[in-house]
Structures are given as C-alpha cells and as structure tokens.
Simulated scan of single mutants.
Amino acid sequence: MIVGVGIDVCDVDRFAETIRRRPGLVRRLFTEAEAAKPIASQAARFAAKEALAKALGAPSGMSWVHAEVLTDADGRPSFKLIGTVAERAAALGVQVIHVSLSHDAGIASAVVVCES
C-alpha cells in the first residue's frame, strides 16, 4: 500500500548560488559522501530529500543528514535512513522507498514513493 508520494524540483544554478552564499548549508543538508558530489548531483539529492519529506507528511524536526541518497553500481538511487527520518518512516509503517532522480537543462528533480 502506498503511504506517501513526494516530488520536488530544484534549479541547479539557484541551488549553487545559495551554497556559495551560505556554505554552512552543505553540512546541514548532506552527508560527507553526498557533499563530495558535483553540484547538479547535490541539487538532485536535495530534491530527493524534499520529496521524501513530502511523502512522509512533511513533519518538523527531521534532520536532512538522516536521509542519505546512495547510488548502486548500476546508478540506481536509494535512501539510507537513520535517526529522525527512520523514526518517522517507521511510525508510518514504511517498508520500501522508491526514488528516482534526474537533472537536465539546469533543473534537478526527484520523485519518491513510500510503501508499507
């Protein structure tokens, strides 16, 4: 059963400018591995985290670094959840999270579907 669906888009140039103006955001938004990615990949991961928050009902108090976007050897993205985000997902009965990322023409996007 679908518990929640989220979608988000992020303008890569605008995201890059925000990071240039406020570099401390990187530590608040990303794990070390995510922070090492190119800016377009960071923007897509930010969109994925926003989409996940929407799919989980957008509660306050979740930490962005508690949802890490991983990519397997074939390029397929997935989430590793810990802490506040894992707790929220468990409270909703989420068993499986599907995520799709894209970035093209200066826009990064993500779709997330949470299933019980």
Score class of each variant (00 low, 15 high):
I2L: 09
I2D: 02
G6L: 06
C10Q: 05
D11N: 15
D13W: 06
D13A: 15
R14T: 08
F15L: 05
F15C: 03
E17Q: 14
E17V: 10
E17N: 11
E17T: 14
E17L: 14
I19S: 02
I19D: 03
R20G: 08
R22G: 00
R22I: 11
P23H: 08
L25T: 02
V26D: 01
R28Y: 02
F30D: 01
F30K: 02
F30Q: 01
E34T: 09
E34R: 06
A35T: 13
A35I: 14
K37C: 15
I39N: 05
S41C: 13
Q42A: 06
A43D: 04
R45V: 10
A47P: 00
A47Q: 07
A48E: 02
L52V: 03
K54P: 04
A55Y: 12
L56Q: 01
G57P: 05
P59M: 04
S60R: 15
G61I: 03
G61C: 00
M62P: 03
M62F: 12
W64K: 11
W64G: 06
A67M: 09
V69P: 05
V69D: 00
L70T: 14
A73H: 10
A73M: 10
G75K: 08
R76P: 05
F79G: 00
K80M: 10
L81T: 06
I82W: 05
G83E: 06
A86K: 07
A86R: 07
E87G: 01
R88C: 01
R88L: 00
A89M: 09
A90T: 11
A91M: 09
A91T: 09
V94Y: 04
Q95R: 15
V96W: 13
V99Q: 01
S100E: 01
L101A: 03
L101I: 08
L101Y: 08
H103V: 06
H103Q: 05
A105C: 12
A105Y: 11
A105F: 14
G106E: 00
I107T: 11
S109Y: 10
S109D: 02
S109M: 13
V112A: 00
V113D: 04
C114D: 00
C114N: 01
E115Y: 12
E115N: 13
S116Y: 06
S116P: 09
